[in-house]
Design a binder for these strands. Structure first.
Lengths: 140, 140
DNA sequence: TTGTTTTTGCAAATCATTTGCATTTGGTAA
DNA sequence: TTACCAAATGCAAATGATTTGCAAAAACAA
């Protein structure tokens, strides 16, 4: 069973219908090594699927988000980026010059448990982003 | 010298003119225990200053951001929130139900130096947000 | 294949944020 | 103080991301 069929099953298990639009959105996310915005996804698809609408992309990404199929990130300014949730919890290191993105292991496990004790909060989720200059951009 | 005069001096030192609009925006930020959106600030001021425009608030917040007077945060969905930079570097713990916000000490110092060694990146900045339920909301 | 329910296409609305331009204002030098 | 100039503001309109309403189309269960 390929990756795509795996995601199809995941959606079906949650009672989400497997439409052509959902399939191609997942395919684009699967093929990408970095989080993508709704616009990014739409741009990659509109050539082959002229009837596809940006609103459909948004609607599905939001539905995926609610069903924990994708995670939404605010890496830069205004637009959300989305990535499939594949079990490996991680964060991102972003080059502010070339926009390169590196996934990072999460260093916050024990911090969170201490936090829980200190504050009485139930910790549900977190986000971490590190900004910097990649080795290449560093030297112009 | 009060807090306000301190910020006035800070702006003047950077060559930023001290206008009435800038003063009242800083006053609102100073009075708040939590980061505020441009809308939040505007809403608190428009009654007393009917001529003030939202665009003026945005323009000044952006100028403050460029001059490291405020820090911009994406705590929730789409809108940026702003807080004065007062020297104490910290993060935020946010209750997803009542929107309570707690400042957190930063646990990332050594993580960053390890990161620098591992990746070759020059680390410039970072953001961390923790989401959870506050003790009160936890019990309905 | 039929019927029910969900999803999509499409157009238009909404919300955060930015921009252009004429007018006003803050700071400075006379 | 006054006059000047650069920078900031008021105002209106534009932009860009995201959402919404509704009729038509597609998915899935029976």
């Amino acid at each position: 069973m390929g990756d795509l069929e795996l995601w199809e099953q995941k959606l079906r298990d949650k009672g989400i219908r497997w439409t052509r639009q959902r399939r191609i959105i997942i395919e684009v996310l699967l093929a990408s090594t970095r989080p993508l915005s709704a616009q990014d996804i739409f741009a990659k698809l509109e050539g082959d699927y002229p009837k596809l609408r940006l609103s459909t992309v948004y609607r599905n990404l939001n539905s995926f988000k609610d069903n924990k199929i994708v995670r939404a990130l605010n890496l830069n300014g205004n637009e959300q980026k989305f990535e499939l949730i594949n079990g490996h919890h991680h964060h991102h290191l972003i080059c502010i010059k070339c926009d390169d993105i590196l996934p990072l292991d999460c260093p916050l496990k024990e911090f969170e448990s201490k936090l829980k004790d200190d504050t009485g909060y139930t910790i549900l989720d977190h986000r971490m982003k590190i900004y910097g200059l990649c080795p290449n951009c560093k030297n112009h």
